[in-house]
Computed example of a mutant assay.
Amino acid sequence: MNTFSSWLGQLLRYFRSLVAIGLLCLVLGSPLPAQATSVSPQLKEQVLQIIREHPEVVLESIQAYQLKQQQKLQQARQAFLQDLKNDPQGLISNSPTTGASDSKTILIEFSDFQCPYCAEAHKTLKQLMKKHHNDVKLVYKNFPLNSLHAEAIPAAKAAWAAHQQGKFWEYHDALFTHQDQLGEDLYLDVAKKLNLDLEKFEKDREIANTEIQQDIQLAEKLGLSGTPFFIMKSETVSGAVQLTDLEKLLARAK
């Protein structure tokens, strides 16, 4: 009996790992790894029989996987907040900033130029920075949701290229103002109106992806699923925020 229980326990643990792998691949839309597909037909049948007799192992596997992911996410967020406190410039890196350059109060925005909620938040941020320009530093981070917005990454590349010539915020404002016109014609038209060096603009667009991907990786590491998303100190807010929402964050951060 003990031998059987031990064998069953090992098989259940093996099955749980297969379920976790399968669920992850299902979510990511990836094929199963070789180690999960090279299982013998006999073992597969044994696993299926266990599922029939012990369906609770499926739920247990899902719960264990979710708990592990939540713990990993919490650790990543804690590390981010610690870095924001101890080394804000390292976290800001080359990202565009505006507002009080020496302010310890930092508002980080993750945004997508084609997201309608980001366009609404843009209007709110303009009001915030007009009223509190000397109180807060606004940092822009890219989180283009390219699976939903075809122009999100091209727009981000164009804005990054404008940033290399010191015109990010003007370019950023133009993209949100003309969000319904996002496309190559708009990118070039805005560049011309801002008197950018077009040759440099084109070259910089071609190499913009590296830094944009760094922003995306950070957003994914923090578990962000949508835009806009704002972080100030240890607090967060998302969606089409109101001015009062951001002012409350600012008041608590001081």
Rank of each mutant, 00 (worst) to 15 (best):
S93C: 13
S93M: 09
S93F: 14
N94Q: 15
N94A: 15
N94Y: 13
N94L: 15
N94M: 13
N94P: 14
S95K: 12
S95D: 15
S95G: 09
S95R: 15
P96A: 06
P96G: 03
P96R: 04
T97W: 05
T97V: 15
T97A: 04
T98I: 15
T98A: 11
G99K: 00
G99C: 01
G99N: 02
G99T: 00
A100N: 09
A100H: 06
A100G: 00
A100V: 00
A100R: 02
S101T: 14
S101M: 09
D102C: 03
D102H: 08
D102A: 11
D102S: 11
D102G: 02
S103C: 13
S103N: 08
S103H: 08
K104T: 07
K104H: 12
K104Q: 14
T105C: 14
T105E: 08
T105H: 10
T105Q: 12
I106R: 01
I106T: 02
I106L: 05
I106G: 00
I106Q: 00
L107V: 03
L107F: 01
L107Q: 00
L107A: 01
L107R: 02
I108W: 10
I108V: 11
I108M: 11
I108K: 02
I108L: 13
E109H: 06
E109S: 07
E109F: 00
F110S: 01
F110H: 05
F110T: 01
F110E: 03
F110K: 03
F110W: 12
S111P: 07
S111M: 08
D112A: 04
D112Y: 02
D112G: 03
D112L: 05
F113A: 14
F113S: 12
F113V: 11
F113H: 15
F113M: 14
Q114G: 09
Q114K: 10
Q114I: 08
Q114V: 10
C115G: 08
C115N: 08
P116V: 05
P116F: 01
P116N: 06
P116Y: 02
Y117A: 13
Y117E: 11
Y117H: 10
Y117P: 04
Y117N: 10
Y117Q: 07
C118H: 05
C118P: 04
C118W: 06
A119N: 05
A119D: 05
E120Y: 11
E120K: 13
E120V: 13
E120L: 13
E120F: 12
E120G: 03
A121I: 04
A121R: 03
H122N: 11
H122E: 13
H122W: 12
H122P: 12
H122Y: 12
H122V: 04
K123H: 15
K123G: 12
K123V: 11
T124G: 08
T124P: 04
T124L: 07
L125W: 00
L125R: 00
L125C: 03
K126H: 13
